[in-house]
Design a binder for these strands. Structure first.
Lengths: 334, 334
DNA sequence: TCCTTGCCTGAAACCGGTTTCAGATTATGA
DNA sequence: TCATAATCTGAAACCGGTTTCAGGCAAGGA
């Protein structure tokens, strides 16, 4: 597969100028006589010239690539964040390169090295577990934005949503609707977001002077099956509760299924609220009341922030807050 | 942000050898005296050397990147295919670069050019609309695999599932369960997969000597709302039907919701079958009977095939077939 | 008219690797 | 012991661009 691609030298020959001049018009840099510029442009057009980014990257020190570290958690949330990033980068000349950390610290470090080996111009870390001091160090190697991970001390290098607030809003909404016995299906206990949502749950309970019943907190994992098991375990033990706050939509769905099997009506007998507002939530039966995570906007904001950061432009991060989406899976108790 | 990264020359100085020798041990190429090799290796270790992929790409002609053209359709299916690709490429030294074609031919062509400009070593096209002759041409520029698009004439450069078969299986399952009036919610009419599934539906009907009622075919778009509207339009017009074949799970969900609103029981009164088997399907109420698309395996197979293709290795594509997943949204009519 | 000045331009160095090629060294065989 | 082959090695060319630098040229000022 011999590369017969035409190079800047071909253009130079064709337009009877030097490589340097071609480079100048290519980058719109320095001054070039209008006639020569036109000749170069014409040559580029007729020869269908496509500059070699690899060579540009090597020579210019800018590879025009952005490294993206993802965590292959397989939830719709991360996928949406990534979509946001891809869209945010589209048409900017920068291309995203993806590597997968699988939520393992050592692997994360390794794949970030491969990213650096590719001289990425910037880094977007989606979630992940890297300790802050390593992030700090990384930041001095390449412009870095962390997204979908709460790092308060990182200020404007971090695009995230307040998960404690999300948990709080969800729980408070149930409390305000009159619920007093509110169960919770947790996400993975080693997952920061899950812990924060749980903290929000606790805090809302405390603020309402409601006791926290540990037995009404099920150690889930963000998957649907966890929701099923949670409900079954509570029912089995004869626990009383009128509402469930699930750490994400998928486990809310699982919970709803378990109730369906027992012929327990939602929301009449038991209310359910989730977190995510993924596409399917609106079509659950009944449509799921949930806390919307602005996943795609987060990704887009991260991309935009990184672009600004790399080019030394000012920028400010949008404040992305969890938003309560009222649908029909929660009803008032009066 | 001065790049103080250490280079092959630093290693060479440190180990008292030439760049050429360092390169040789780096690539395990040619012969190198064991002592010098050790010295080089030691230098690499102590200096924490990370070869510059950009430079390697330029010099060696292999960029170790794979271009991925995606269609930002936003459905879980494509996301899953992409996950499969990322996983399939993980640990191979190749990194995926993503561009988005948004299902627009002209944009697809443009972004493929940017991929080529980055001297990708291979190309994976996920879905898309590019005409076959352009694909054919592309194939001679870089090793190319098409995934999630049926291109029978492309033989082993194409990883796909038979969507006609998927539609046929779904419909036949309903027929075999005793259903005679089977409605269908189509996907986008300009989407090949949707058309094929519809063809499968028609064929299964024909094979069962059942008439095709055009009014029971709703022109959907793979989204949930289409499912809702489909059911409402049929009900409004007083159409009789006992089963629905939805072109994907999401529109099946929509249909289920519309029935729920009318208090029509599933599957007792109306059966539903979808296509995809996305994560949520198993937790629908009732759990959705569906045709599983092996999305992640398709992505993984595409990655594997491309790797083999690029390195001139033999390979054979797995036969990935739609698989009926029996759950509870379909019941027999007897 | 001569000297600056500023505008253009091409030659050449450079980015960090790979690869070719020829020479040096060592091992082998006669 | 010497010729020959096999094994190693470094210098230099090269990949396709960018950037520096010095010089050529025309315009402007004295």
């Amino acid at each position: 597969m011999k590369s017969n691609r035409i190079t800047i030298q071909d253009i130079a020959n064709h337009a009877r100028v030097s490589k340097a001049t071609v480079s100048r018009v290519l980058n719109d840099h320095g001054t070039v006589n209008a006639q020569k510029r036109d000749a170069v442009l014409a040559a580029m057009g007729s020869l269908d010239f496509q500059p070699n980014q690899i060579a540009r990257g090597l020579a210019g020190g800018r590879s025009m690539t952005i490294g993206i570290l993802t965590q292959n958690i397989g939830t719709p949330f991360y996928d949406a964040v990534i979509r946001g990033i891809i869209n945010g980068l589209a048409g900017t000349g920068y291309s995203p390169i993806f590597v997968d950390g699988q939520f393992k610290q050592d692997l994360e470090q390794k794949v970030i090295q491969t990213l650096l080996g590719r001289s990425v111009d910037g880094l977007i870390l989606v979630g992940g577990d890297l300790p802050v001091d390593q992030l700090e160090q990384l930041r001095h190697t390449a412009p870095t934005i962390v997204v979908a991970r709460e790092l308060p001390q990182w200020g404007d290098h971090c695009v995230s949503m307040d998960n404690l607030d999300a948990g709080y809003q969800a729980t408070k909404y149930l409390v305000d609707a009159g619920h007093r016995q509110i169960a919770h299906i947790k996400g993975n206990s080693d997952h920061e977001d899950a812990v924060r949502r749980y903290e929000g749950y606790c805090q809302a309970l405390a603020d309402a002077k409601l006791p926290l019943d540990e037995e009404l907190v099920y150690p889930g994992n963000f998957y649907g099956q966890a929701g099923v098991l949670a409900v079954e375990s509570w029912l089995m033990r004869g626990k009383n509760f009128t509402a469930i706050f699930a750490a994400n939509d998928l486990s809310a769905l699982g919970a709803r299924l378990a109730l369906y099997r027992r012929n327990i009506r939602v929301p009449d007998e038991i209310s359910i609220i989730g977190v995510d507002d993924q596409l399917e939530a609106a079509f659950m039966t009944p449509p799921l009341t949930t806390i919307r995570q602005p996943a795609e906007p987060m990704g887009a904001a991260a991309a935009e922030a990184l672009l600004a950061l790399m080019n030394g432009r000012e920028y400010k991060l949008p404040t992305l807050r969890a938003e309560l989406i009222r649908r029909e899976s929660v009803c008032g108790l009066h």
